[in-house]
Design a protein around this nucleic acid. Structure first.
Lengths: 204, 204
DNA sequence: CATATTTTTTACGCCAGTGTAAAGAAATGG
DNA sequence: CCATTTCTTTACACTGGCGTAAAAAATATG
């Protein structure tokens, strides 16, 4: 009987999820740095040491929360990049991809995009960096494609333009609060107008 | 003889400066969170406890580094705001004001603009928040002025537009490294083109 | 129901980082 | 030179947070 049953696995998975939900909420409200394992355990209703049964350490909890979203962001931009859409449309979709999760995945979007962990957890960085590197590459390719097709301003250095636009989008993770100011679709719309103009698109 | 001499004061000030330089370098290289008082003391060549003679605690060291720059940024934008320049020119100067210090005040610019301290030091936030609030207000006023004079796109929500542009500029504190990619004046130039276009200016 | 497995709690130990006070050393001023 | 002031070091104490292992409790299984 070394093989545990489906029911036991389900129970384990439920607890893992419970821990991740609690951690996500806490990371969101008080930051990763200010969230201890004791905080998480208390929120779940177990003792701190019990968390080690499910996760090896605190950084791994963070990874379990942010990596899926990072992968989604990247994979979606890859699809966009490989599509037949025009460069403008691609950029539009890419910005939308970045910001749309603020609507119903606000907490993990915020945690992921703020990347506060950069100074704290080398293993988290090691895990996320390849994803963000891919992500960057894809954005740059979209910009380059637009420049090649004389749709975006050719005088812009593609990587630096990307980083500027990424900054514009990521900064929202700092200030955006659901229910205040603009609904997400309007935010996307407005930022897409700004972004496309900044790239010199739609200069009619 | 309760009044110490100029020479004693000078000595004290020298040591304080020495500490701030060392701290700035460390904060820059490894982040505020990863810099202990021991690290700073070692870099200066004294014992950790000695630092308490000059500064009450670590957050106050950070404040001593970043507050002057925050005030400069704000005060300069206030001048710009109150000038007779056109809205476009004001925005140009404002972006320049934000980015120009990457040239010869890279370390403290980077530390200041990255605002990593937000999750760690309430007293730092308390000290800086009023400055950033003023700063934001001034940016927004410049945008509103441009919209009123039909130079910037009136459909943009001013604060959100400001936050997007701020994000674009601030993000540079994460990725910009002197000597790599663009020299600062070229970076300013390029970002100003992007920013002004994003606001709908210069749509000729 | 007894046994095996899983989960949770208890019990420790460690340490990095901090802050305080007193003692000692160095600098200053008359 | 000596008393005073300033600066640095020594000496402690504390605490938050973490990780490990064993014991106890809960659950699953035949």
């Amino acid at each position: 009987m070394a093989k545990s049953s489906s029911a036991v696995e389900q129970r384990r998975e439920n607890r893992r999820e419970e821990i991740l939900r609690a951690a996500q909420d806490l990371f969101h409200r008080q930051g990763y740095a200010n969230t201890s394992l004791d905080d998480i355990a208390r929120a779940v209703g177990i003792k701190r040491e019990g968390l080690y049964y499910y996760f090896p350490n605190r950084p791994e909890i963070l990874i379990a929360i942010i990596k899926p979203l990072g992968l989604q962001l990247r994979d979606r931009v890859r699809e966009i990049r490989e599509s037949d859409a025009s460069p403008e449309e691609k950029m539009r979709l890419t910005v939308e991809n970045h910001l749309m999760r603020f609507e119903n995945r606000f907490a993990d979007s915020k945690i992921t995009l703020r990347d506060d962990y950069f100074s704290e957890a080398d293993i988290v960085l090691a895990e996320m960096q390849p994803i963000w590197d891919d992500y960057e590459r894809l954005w740059i390719e979209i910009i380059e494609e637009g420049q090649q097709k004389a749709v975006f301003d050719k005088s812009l250095e593609p990587r630096i333009a990307h980083l500027g636009i990424l900054g514009l989008c990521n900064w929202a993770a700092r200030w955006y609060k659901p229910g205040e100011s603009l609904p997400v679709p309007d935010l996307i719309d407005m930022y897409n107008r700004m972004v496309l103009r900044s790239l010199g698109a739609g200069s009619e």
